[in-house]
Design a protein around this nucleic acid. Structure first.
Lengths: 243, 243
DNA sequence: ACTCTGGGCTGATACACAGCAGCGGGAGAC
DNA sequence: GTCTCCCGCTGCTGTGTATCAGCCCAGAGT
């Protein structure tokens, strides 16, 4: 793959105009190609973190397990996302990562990242800028859990997924393929799997969304947005911000 | 104040060893001293963001308001914290910030920050690294909201506040002054103010914590930690990470 | 001295969501 | 083919938290 056109490069260039040195450094990140089977735990909370991944194909999720065994999914990763970066920065993983589908990724060694950041601080700025955008997403998720009902949470969540998959949602009946199970939804939204099922049924019966057989279809985009209080402002941008 | 010894400099140096250029750039950030009265809205969600703040004295909180008027507090800021940084990076504020107590702060112009980042990318790396640590805190908060009961949430939250105020908690009966009202707790923990009151009473009756008259006292540190599932690992570090 | 306001406190009632228990269907293993 | 496991689905019952309604107190304003 040409590094100049990878989804990650495009993402980073949206924040900081990258120079030759940055591109070369980024190219050196891509050394080891790896794949993982669904369900594989790519990173385990608490473990010393020796590498991160750039996701090329498939879906993953980052989560934490509580002492009582319950799980909270923090976010989902899709192709182009950088995963496990925070664990590199702080040497120890503060969360686990699991492959949801089959995954193709580039493994990046922690030492390559840290050396690269030291040599190409502009690249570091870009990567951490992207991390800031991820933080905005986590914040949205937090608000979702703190102050919305189960139905509102689900609406908001599905809309956000759609937006990330750059489904702008011009019209109704549009949708996207989604490999998540109802258990994933439950653990992401802080609900029980049983209740997720009921909420999905209710949304379907109200003619808002359909989520069946691995496909999400927005039946009434506008009413769904109103229900979920969904606003894409923080996803918009007209960068690069730093030239 | 000597910039070399400010709390912010100490914080940043924990991540990246700063050089002369970085220190000079940082010094240029401190131009305008400002103070705010309790309740003042220092930043409003959606507004074009022209400056950020470095907090010298007092407490603030970052929050979002939902369409129905409910509020979710995302995090609290204490002296040494950088506030409104994300809003600068993305030009528009994705959250509001309110002064809880009287505040003394340095206002930093967006242009100074962006110019500074361009000239001293090492400093940018340090600042964004610190932002990554903040993200870890937001993630903890998210897990708290998603998967813990009201009592557990409160226990975890008070312990985390104590830890941030570098109260290591060697022994019981230690505590800290805390200017938050029960309404703040409610909006941070996704509860009603009424319920916050009940939960505090319960924790007090169980001999775990006392929160009265603006002071939090840990009556039984270990049992409280067990209840809140509190683990400080992600706060520990032995950096600087980048030399 | 009076009122007003904000914060803390409490009881009664309502409801959203969890927990348990169980069924059915499809896909993969043997 | 049959067994098994995972995932989706549903009814019943229980409970944690919200909502409503109201009281008390301290401090600030007039």
């Amino acid at each position: 793959m040409n590094i100049l056109q990878s989804p990650l490069t495009r993402k980073l260039s949206a924040f900081v105009a990258l120079e030759t040195l940055d591109m070369e450094t980024l190219a050196r990140f891509h050394r080891r190609r790896r794949s993982f089977l669904p369900g594989h735990e790519m990173l385990h909370e608490g473990q010393k973190s020796r590498s991160a991944f750039i996701l090329a194909e498939g879906w993953a999720c980052a989560y934490k397990i509580l002492p009582d065994g319950e799980r909270q999914i923090v976010d989902f990763q899709i192709p182009g996302d950088f995963l496990g970066l925070r664990s590199i920065l702080f040497r120890t993983a503060d969360h686990s990562i699991e492959a949801i589908t089959r995954i193709e990724a580039t493994e990046v060694l922690a030492s390559d990242i840290l050396d690269g950041f030291a040599q190409a601080p502009r690249l570091a700025t870009a990567v951490l800028w992207a991390a800031s955008r991820d933080e905005a997403m986590v914040v949205e998720h937090l608000v979702n859990l703190g102050r919305r009902s189960a139905e509102e949470r689900m609406a908001h969540f599905l809309l956000e997924l759609g937006a990330r998959l750059s489904l702008v949602g011009a019209g109704d009946k549009e949708g996207f393929d989604c490999p998540l199970t109802q258990y994933h939804l439950a653990d992401a939204l802080g609900l029980s799997a049983v209740h997720v099922n009921r909420v999905l049924r209710q949304l379907r019966e109200e003619g808002l969304v359909t989520f069946q057989k691995g496909r999400v279809i927005f039946d009434d985009f506008n009413r769904l947005k109103a229900l979920g209080g969904f606003d894409t402002a923080y996803l918009d941008q007209d960068g690069p911000f730093l030239r």
